[in-house]
């Protein structure tokens, strides 16, 4: 995988919202790479900056959000160097996004077919309407919806079907990367499961990379091959998902998340939460942003922000590993 050229490269990315009281950083110095045909999970609690990151990659930030630092490259192309016109062509043909809200991502007054055709015909000037229609049918079959629903309006479809349509639109132009921003949050668990299976199947069939944004830890751990964990706008750990268990050493926040997962098969279920509250982005704690909630916090955590370190196959941003692990790795 490592010798492949990455589909997505995020370098030192910082994004801030302009507010009355100055800049509030929602994303801070983030580095992340996604390789072809790889599913990477991006996990974080509400307000950790994961959705902002998704919108930043798509260059869909609105109004008062600005990229203050860093680059986003898709297939080596810096997304923020494109002109508006180039961006319109580039977006969706190279990268696409499935939105959080299955219910509201489709235009209520247009048939499903028109909305799929819009994506196709806006990019493929050489495509005839007939070819586009054929492709739309193909896409519907790919996401397992009867093509007769092409003539349906969104309100005539169930939530799960709507999300499948959105996925069909996302993969219409065979993008190299599809960002999925909590694609199953609005759906019930049974539908969630079938959509996830679908996503995995289509991903294997068609072949594209997925950046899967979610707050559902166990769901992402199952789907993705690598998981990036965000806290207060920083990626504090990137880890292969098969190492996501308590036998491995993790960032204390990851450890807290792992302890919070109930095991259905366990005799007596003990769930441990993480104490404290998510940090206020306007007033981040000094040093490591997690230190007020961290059971292992020491003096240095309050003063110095930890560097990112390789711990085995993992990348962890924590002082706990700085001395001993560094020595063993260098």
């Amino acid at each position: 995988m490592a010798d492949n050229k990455p589909v997505l490269e995020i370098e030192d990315l910082s994004v801030a919202y302009v507010t009355g009281s100055g800049l509030v950083h929602a994303v801070n110095d983030v580095n992340l790479k996604v390789y072809p045909n790889e599913i990477v999970g991006l996990i974080g609690e509400s307000g950790s900056g994961k959705s902002t990151m998704a919108y930043t990659i798509m260059r869909l930030l609105k109004g008062d959000a600005v990229v203050t630092k860093g680059r986003v490259k898709i297939l080596g192309q810096d997304v923020y160097q494109l002109s508006k016109k180039e961006l319109r062509q580039f977006r969706w043909s190279k990268m696409a996004m499935v939105f959080q809200s299955a219910m509201s991502a489709l235009n209520p007054v247009m048939t499903v077919e028109t909305q799929i055709l819009d994506a196709l015909l806006s990019h493929r000037k050489d495509m005839t309407k007939e070819q586009a229609r054929a492709r739309a049918r193909e896409l519907m079959e790919l996401v397992r919806i009867d093509p007769k629903h092409l003539k349906s309006y969104p309100h005539e479809l169930s939530g799960g079907m709507r999300q499948r349509v959105v996925i069909a639109i996302a993969i219409a132009l065979n993008p190299a990367l599809v960002i999925m921003d909590e694609p199953t949050t609005a759906l019930d668990v049974v539908v969630q499961r079938s959509i996830l299976d679908e996503i995995r199947k289509i991903q294997q069939e068609v072949g594209f990379a997925i950046l899967f944004v979610s707050h559902d830890f166990s769901l992402v751990a199952e789907l993705a091959s690598r998981v990036a964990i965000m806290y207060a706008g920083r990626i504090i750990e990137v880890t292969p998902s098969d190492l996501l268990h308590l036998q491995e050493k993790h960032h204390p926040y990851t450890e807290g998340l792992l302890k919070a997962i109930p095991e259905l098969t366990a005799e007596d279920v003990t769930i441990q939460g993480i104490g404290g509250y998510p940090p206020d982005l306007q007033d981040l704690p000094s040093g490591c942003a997690f230190h007020p909630r961290c059971p292992y916090a020491t003096d240095i955590c309050r003063r110095v922000r930890p560097e990112k370190l390789a711990v085995g196959d993992k990348l962890i941003e924590c002082h706990l590993f700085s001395e001993k692990e560094l020595v063993s790795h260098v």
Binding site: L60, S104, L106, N107, V109, D118, S122, H123
Partner: peptide, 26 residues
């Protein structure tokens, strides 16, 4: 501000169509 307008913008719908068929129509 609706998601379907942002989604349509993301999928590359030309501005005129975005304004009239997606936003203004609704």
């Amino acid at each position: 501000g609706e998601d379907y307008v942002v989604f349509a913008e993301a999928k590359g719908v030309p501005t005129r169509r975005l304004i009239f068929s997606y936003a203004a129509r609704n």
